[in-house]
């Protein structure tokens, strides 16, 4: 299975359903922080440019808030595509975006456990 097929399989998304309306990018609250924009996730998969997608910063900026998923008129779910790219990265050795050592200085008194749990699941294998 090549990388393109792998993204399609993990995400369960058919990128060819996209009609390129850009509503995902219009609605994304993390848009400004992203180097590859939500509507581009889809075209990167269409053109098989998974290497670039797997190197993007966007996957660490996505909030998994599902605004793009909810509002997509074609049910493409760009957030799922990005998550699949992230999976491919964190499943590789050294692919983690967060290490245990980094955490202690980031924790303050009020920090809910939920935040650590979510960040771990999101950033680490």
């Amino acid at each position: 299975m090549n990388a393109k097929e792998q993204v399609q399989q993990i995400s369960g998304v058919n990128p060819y359903k996209c009609m390129k309306c850009g509503k995902c990018s219009a609605t994304c609250p993390a848009y400004e922080e992203m180097d590859i924009k939500p509507h581009q996730f889809v075209s990167y998969v269409q053109s098989g440019n998974i290497e670039a997608l797997a190197a993007c910063k966007s996957m660490w900026k996505c909030l998994s808030c599902f605004a793009c998923v909810e509002r997509c008129p074609r049910d493409v779910q760009p957030g799922r595509i990005l998550d699949a790219a992230r999976q491919i990265v964190v499943r590789q050795r050294g692919g983690n975006y967060l290490t245990a050592e980094e955490i202690p200085p980031l924790v303050d008194e009020d920090l809910p456990q939920q935040l650590l749990v979510s960040a771990y699941r999101r950033y680490k294998r």
């Binding site: 922080e33 900026k61 998994s64 975006y97 955490i103 979510s118 960040a119």
Partner: peptide, 18 residues
Amino acid sequence: ECCGGYISLKEPDMAKNM
């Protein structure tokens, strides 16, 4: 609209903006 969720661990400014 999202509060930033888990992003606040590594990118507190981003969450704060939102």
